[in-house]
Design a protein around this nucleic acid. Structure first.
Lengths: 213, 213
DNA sequence: CGATGTGAACGCGTTCACAGCG
DNA sequence: CGCTGTGAACGCGTTCACATCG
């Protein structure tokens, strides 16, 4: 199979979202043109992206909405359940915990940790907040592969090291820090401060830099 | 001035962060090599990025940490105060409101809005939560140029339209939706669901290269 | 010398144009 | 005929290599 670029993965997520919307609208067939306009890209780009994974469309017709949706779910690894650990039960952690979209895509938060003794023992939806001292045993016991890291920047690298040592294979990092992990571990970061700086840069530039993500 | 790419802006944010760290460590001079290794990029990339905005380094020596920090702040539009409106006082809104890094970079939340009558009138740090009915007058009165949109996907486009009509020039969107705005308005999105999907994609790729159902 | 600044080469993702097939 | 699938062309960001200068 050909190499798949990072931007392509991002667009696949977008296509999947559009397809889910079309499903709800009862639409059964969609053209690359239609999918492109809804996703803010081009028809050629849509076809190129999809062609990396197979031939899903029917010439002269378009793509089957339910068919393509199922395929994209599978490609993105969403056709299974993922056990997720939430590390850091602060405000960001709380926001993520309540984020419905994640659960719907199969990402289930099965453990929550915090270092603050005042928070440990608290319950969020029948899930007890554990002390970080229990990190390793709980991760192992529940077979958790993905961690969401929502701790202060100063604690992020240390926690990441422990997560990796405990067998976590993917980390979504909300701390404004670059994490150093082995190449076998995937890290994606959500950096709100950096995004705000993109905005202010665009404003002082006076550009219309329509880099709408 | 030459064209500046989107990835470059992201790296400038990163460099600035590293420089702030070096400042605290009392380091006064830094080479492109050192800055690169801390930022996870290459020395040539650092020099190329910076050269787009001028010549800040001294040959044979490196860059002045305080000097470069000041310059980057200015380039990124961080040498002034920005009035920010927070639209949506849910969990994500609350997390953002408490995010110290933003305030430190000059992004001050000067207004909070929500549609929920139960929340309207509540106070967050001496800031009253306004009804969305007051959106337009309050934005105008306070001269707010940047909005953080933390509302459900279904309400995002409608709110974005109102924000743009009210003169907002930049939007940081947390809703998992593409926003349609005029080209003069900058939108950046933080899409946690999409980031999680990047992780699951990487994980299934690692184990099952076919992506088959 | 040492590290910057930069034109040139390179690689890669996007766009184009059209062949292929229902 | 319509729309997909795809090799080729293109543009752009990254990397390289070295001239440049403190």
């Amino acid at each position: 199979m050909k190499k798949v670029s990072e931007p392509t993965i991002g667009r696949l997520s977008l296509y999947l979202r559009m397809l889910s919307g079309l499903m709800e609208s009862g639409v059964r067939t969609v053209s690359s043109e239609e999918l492109a306009s809804r996703s803010g890209t081009t028809a050629a780009q849509v076809r190129k992206d999809l062609s990396l994974f197979g031939t899903f469309g029917k010439r002269g017709l378009g793509y089957s909405v339910p068919g393509l949706e199922t395929r994209l779910r599978s490609i993105l690894g969403l056709s299974r359940r993922w056990s997720v650990a939430l590390v850091g039960a602060g405000r960001i952690g709380a926001a993520l915990f309540g984020y419905e979209s994640l659960r719907r895509q199969g990402f289930c938060i099965d453990a929550v940790f915090d270092v603050d003794p005042a928070k440990v023992g608290e319950r969020w939806n029948d899930l007890e907040i554990h002390s970080d001292a229990c990190l390793e045993p709980v991760l192992a016991e529940r077979g958790i592969e993905i961690a969401v890291l929502a701790v202060p920047a100063s604690a992020a690298q240390g926690m990441a090291d422990r997560l990796v040592a405990a067998g976590v294979r993917a980390i979504l990092n909300f701390a404004p820090t670059r994490l150093d992990v082995p190449p076998s571990v995937v890290v994606k970061s959500v950096d709100m401060a950096a995004e705000m700086e993109r905005l202010s840069y665009a404003l002082v530039r006076g550009t219309d830099a329509s880099g709408a993500v």
